[in-house]
Design a protein around this nucleic acid. Structure first.
Length: 150
DNA sequence: GCCAACGTTGGC
DNA sequence: GCCAACGTTGGC
């Protein structure tokens, strides 16, 4: 069992949206490093920290769970989609997605300042400057520090 | 294969 | 809105 942090822009898709949806495909990722994790590493049952990015109050807001292993991202095949990629096709898919399920909100969202102040969480990749990965690994220690206290 | 130009991300 | 960081593109 592994743990991940996934970013979403709340103006686009928020954690409340995930709660309403229940289960949602994590689509539109167009970065090879992230693709490799989605396709090869992220497994059903893995834990997900849901992070709101590019917004007024960037923060880890809740917990989700992977409920489907990596499979081809169909939005890459559709020219009407924002993330359409003509180089990807069903016979030879380039981009992958997983399905994630809402679990629960944190009692209190963890802002970047909260994370920076924490002895364990201050090491999280999401705090690193210039980090642009929309999916990144979280250590068991970091996961437990969050799930235990929040 | 190098690298400059360009686009995107995302905190601030 | 600014700008640093980084990935991608494409000419050579």
């Amino acid at each position: 069992m592994n743990y991940w942090l996934m970013k979403s822009e709340p103006d686009c898709f928020s954690f409340d949206d995930l709660q309403k949806a229940g289960v949602e495909p994590w689509d539109g990722v167009r970065n090879y490093q992230a693709r490799n994790m989605l396709r090869d590493e992220i497994q059903v049952g893995d834990g997900v920290l849901f992070y709101h990015s590019n917004c007024k109050e960037p923060a880890i807001v809740g917990i989700a769970e992977v409920v489907r292993n990596g499979y081809p991202d169909p939005t890459a095949f559709d020219p009407r989609e924002k993330h359409f990629d003509p180089r990807s096709n069903p016979a030879n898919p380039r981009w992958y997605q997983v399905d994630v399920k809402y679990v629960r909100h944190l009692k209190q969202a963890l802002s970047r300042d909260d994370l920076r102040r924490h002895p364990v969480l201050s090491k999280m990749g999401v705090l690193k400057k210039g980090n642009r990965l929309s999916v990144m690994p979280v250590t068991a220690e970091q996961w437990q520090a969050i799930v235990r206290d929040a």
